[in-house]
């Protein structure tokens, strides 16, 4: 199976590889896996608490080229969006952009799951922070 040029580009030059401080209240972490192929993907976002805009996104994926490209593209797309806007990204958008073949669609699903998990984690943290503002300022 041949990878599309866009997959190869993201695979060779992955965008936003790295790690954010998991302990920070502004950071949401999503860790997801595809048991079908043994891939594991971590996607993190840093959200501006005033604007709800995702200012930074980082990922680290252990998996095939399509999984790496899907998560790399996902971080590019969510950066600069508000949290709610980022939730609008669908795996089918990733499939289209990267021309993923049917057998690799689960890689795009994984990337969408990772976005949702990271935002979910941030929301959970944020909910706690809103209830106890003193705890946040104490950090």
């Amino acid at each position: 199976m041949a990878y599309s040029d866009k997959v190869i580009d993201h695979y060779n030059n992955p965008r936003n590889v790295g790690q954010l401080d998991k302990g920070s209240a502004e950071v949401g972490t999503g860790l997801v896996g595809a048991p079908e192929c043994g891939d594991v993907m971590r996607l993190q976002i840093r959200v501006n608490p005033e604007t709800q805009v995702i200012e930074e996104a980082k990922f680290k994926t252990f998996g095939c080229g399509s999984a790496i490209a899907s998560s790399s593209l996902a971080t590019e797309w969510i950066k600069g969006r508000t949290v709610e806007d980022a939730l609008a990204i669908k795996n089918t958008d990733i499939v289209k952009e990267l021309s993923l073949p049917p057998v690799k669609i689960h890689c795009s699903v994984l990337a969408e799951d990772a976005i949702r998990a990271a935002i979910g984690d941030w929301k959970k943290k944020n909910g706690v922070a809103e209830a106890e503002p003193a705890a946040v300022t104490a950090q």
Partner: peptide, 21 residues
């Protein structure tokens, strides 16, 4: 079901992959 892979397994596998890398 997004929770088919338990979170602790993912944590463990991710950590092992990091060490190996």
């Amino acid at each position: 079901d997004p929770s088919r892979v338990p979170a602790d397994l993912l944590e463990e596998v991710f950590e092992l992959n990091m060490q190996l890398e």
